[in-house]
Amino acid sequence: MAESWANLAVAVPAAIVGAGFMGLASAAQARATKQVPLERTLHPRLLLDLARRPLWLVGIGATVAGLGLQLVSLGFGPLILVQPLLVTALPFASVFAAWFAHRRPDGLVLLGTLVCIAGLSGFLMLARPSDGTAQLPPAGDVVLLTVVLGLVALAGLGWSWLVAGPTRVLGLALATGVLYGVSAGLMKLVADDLRAGWLATFTDWPLYVVCVIGPIGFLLSQNTFQQGQLIAPALAVITTVDPLVGVVIGVWWMGESVSTGAAVLSGELIAAVTMIAGIAMLSWRNSHPAPGQPAEQVPAPLNPAVGSPARR
């Protein structure tokens, strides 16, 4: 029991501080993507353009710090504890986005932040997530869940390609959230391998798969930030889908568990709805800026001359 509390004393602060770095990274990258020409989805040229932007490099540094702390947190805590804590990246991102725009977060942003944190705290206190097995999941479970999550990600990409208008970016955000959640599940396996010994890390497949999925998800997130008018709606989808996928992987693959029972489940549902309400407040404010707080604009094509097509 003492060891369990000691592990949580490392996992929870690491996850929250990591979420703060992720919020900084999202705000910096979202702003930087508006300063370069518009690119097609998943085209690597976007990263070459962004690499010349100092603000984007700040975001990269924050991303590395956030991922490092997430890996530490996953090494000491269950996936279904760590992933919901990453929802706090959205309030952090809202604060940093206001700072980059040289304005103060308004009252609704602060209220949404408090509601989000209150719902998250209530959920974790009631759920009392427990760790599972460090063993690799059965091949059948891997294939089945991979197919399901792959179809969800493809559905998001399909929506972004087929639907016109501002809602198309939410499809990109859905696919990004799925890839981030899968990456987190694989990072949990890598973290367990690291605690068991370095040799196991390089002989098991999760490290190599996350090295492929992770960069794809990151590039897709940059497309999401660039093609969206505002950071919060898309980031709200990413920060909701990511932990949901993580919870599914934790329970289905890794044998992690949460407290059950009618009363506990009812409380968890109320806490989850409260957290979603906080996310919705933040998204609404960023979709309806207060006076004097204009939305970010999608960047112009590479060649702004008449008749020149955008790089899409």
Rank of each mutant, 00 (worst) to 15 (best):
F202R: 02
V237G: 13
G177L: 06
D204W: 02
D204P: 00
V245K: 01
D204N: 15
L207Y: 08
L235D: 03
W198T: 07
M187A: 12
P233D: 13
R195S: 15
L174N: 03
L207Q: 10
L194D: 04
T240S: 15
A196C: 08
M187S: 06
V251M: 14
L194G: 11
D192S: 14
G217M: 02
G250D: 14
L189S: 15
P206E: 06
F218K: 01
W198Q: 14
T239P: 01
L235V: 00
V237M: 12
V210Y: 05
G177D: 07
T224N: 10
V209Q: 01
I216E: 09
I213R: 08
Q222D: 01
V182T: 05
G228V: 02
I238D: 00
M187T: 04
G228C: 03
L174K: 08
D204G: 11
V178D: 07
G197V: 05
A200N: 04
A232C: 06
V248S: 04
D242H: 15
V209K: 00
L230M: 13
A175D: 04
G246D: 02
A234R: 03
A234C: 01
P233A: 10
C211V: 15
P233W: 07
V247E: 03
I249A: 11
A200T: 10
D204S: 14
T239R: 13
G181M: 09
L189W: 07
D192T: 07
G177Y: 11
P243S: 03
M187P: 00
S183W: 00
L230D: 14
C211M: 15
W252R: 14
G185I: 03
T240I: 12
I238R: 12
D193G: 07
V237L: 06
G214P: 12
